[in-house]
């Protein structure tokens, strides 16, 4: 195919990606600012990183956030995978329409509503707000995203592979574990990562469901930001961005390498 980039195409790409990345880049650069005033450059310093690691409240919040994210993403992955299997492999079962609605609704519903409704529920059943209520709330929201990711893989899945396994003598459960699961594993991992990120990132739902015992990092950052710019928040952000970037680059390289390996030996 003969595709050529015009000057207009190149310009819009350059401006577009500059728009996407410049703010993040500036944020990271100013995290190394010696000055307390975030927007005035006062020389290079790693001072705020040191301050960050001495800020016990912030570290505590980060730890809580990480635990919630790991736990809720794990639960969401199991529940979401089951839901995806139900939607792709069970044909029409009673209440399927309601089920589909419940899977899609949390994804399009504004977070303020999801957060509020879950809080009112927890109050009604008299569950103390804190670590567990945030975990349950995040699991509920993120399992829907896992469902969609795994479901889209299952829909393109070649059913004859499962038939072949059964034809060769593997009963349904063994077919699932020896053929289906290994093949949909990448989408399950992707779903887990998505759930983990969404949980780490969430401010609104966590704010509604947080209690005195448990404050998450986004809530902490938000309350500091509302008071004005803080170089410590810049440093924390830079670390988070660094982790995510490394993670994404690592995952990309891993998948690239396996693709390359299979291509190289192909012919």
């Amino acid at each position: 195919m003969n595709r050529r980039l015009s000057l207009f195409n190149v310009t819009s790409l350059v401006i577009g990606f500059a728009f996407l990345y410049l703010p993040i880049l500036l944020l990271v650069i100013y995290s190394f600012n010696a000055s307390r005033l975030v927007t005035v450059w006062g020389g290079f310093s790693t001072h705020w990183y040191g301050a960050l690691f001495r800020n016990e409240a912030l570290l505590e919040a980060a730890w809580v956030t990480l635990r919630i994210a790991l736990l809720s993403a794990t639960l969401a992955t199991v529940l979401g995978t089951l839901a995806a299997l139900a939607l792709t492999r069970y044909g029409r079962f009673p209440g399927r329409t309601l089920f589909t609605g419940m899977v899609y609704a949390p994804m399009v519903m504004p977070e303020v509503i999801t957060g509020l409704s879950l809080l009112l529920f927890f109050v009604a059943v008299d569950l103390d707000r804190g670590f567990w209520t945030i975990t349950l709330a995040h699991t509920t929201l993120t399992m829907c995203f896992v469902t969609v990711v795994v479901q889209s893989r299952l829909m393109t899945f070649d059913r004859s592979l499962e038939e072949a396994a059964m034809d060769l003598g593997a009963p349904p459960l063994r077919t699932f574990f020896s053929v289906t699961l290994p093949l949909i594993a990448p989408s399950i991992v992707a779903g887990f990562l998505l759930a983990f990120t969404l949980s780490m990132d969430d401010l609104v739902i966590a704010s509604f469901n947080a209690g005195p015992g448990a404050t998450t990092l986004p809530i902490k950052i938000y309350s500091q930001v509302r008071l004005g710019l803080s170089p410590e928040v810049n440093a924390a952000s830079a670390i988070l961005i660094g982790i995510v970037t490394l993670g994404v680059i690592g995952a990309t390289l891993l998948s690239k390498r396996s693709v390359l390996r299979s291509r190289r030996t192909a012919h």
């Binding site: 070649d158 038939e163 072949a164 059964m166 034809d167 093949l183």
Partner: peptide
């Protein structure tokens, strides 16, 4: 008799080779 207990094997049109 379920497919996994039949003394019959099939070569699929798509071959259905397990890619993993």
């Amino acid at each position: 008799v379920p497919p996994y207990r039949r003394p019959v094997n099939m070569m699929f049109q798509s071959y259905a080779l397990f890619p993993h």
